[in-house]
Amino acid sequence: MSEKGITMEEPANNADDGTEKFSLVEDTTTSLDENVSITVTKLPFKLKWKIDFMIMPFFIAIYFLQFLDKSLLNYAAIMGIKKNLHGNQFANLGTIFYVGFVATEPIAAYLIQKLPVAKFLGVNICCWGAVVAFHACTETYAGLMIVRVLLGIFEASVACCLIIIMERTSSTK
Rank of each mutant, 00 (worst) to 15 (best):
E20P: 01
A136L: 10
N74E: 03
I125R: 07
K4F: 02
K48W: 06
G80D: 11
F97I: 01
E155K: 08
T39E: 05
V117W: 01
F90H: 06
N74T: 11
C137N: 04
T7C: 00
G122L: 06
E9P: 01
C161P: 04
Y110D: 00
A108D: 10
K114Q: 11
S157I: 08
F154K: 07
Q89I: 09
D27Y: 11
F53E: 01
N84G: 05
L115H: 08
S2V: 13
I146Y: 02
E105W: 05
I153P: 03
Q113Y: 02
A109S: 15
L32E: 08
N35D: 12
K70L: 12
H135M: 09
N74G: 09
L24K: 01
E105P: 03
L121Y: 01
E3N: 11
I96D: 06
S2D: 13
N35S: 12
G87Y: 11
Y141R: 08
L151W: 04
T140K: 08
S37A: 11
H86W: 07
T95H: 04
E20C: 04
V36M: 09
K83D: 15
S23K: 10
W128A: 05
I51A: 11
G122A: 06
L73F: 02
F134D: 01
A76P: 03
G152P: 07
F134I: 14
A156E: 04
V158R: 01
M1V: 06
L111A: 14
F67I: 08
I153T: 02
D17I: 09
S170D: 03
N124S: 15
G129M: 00
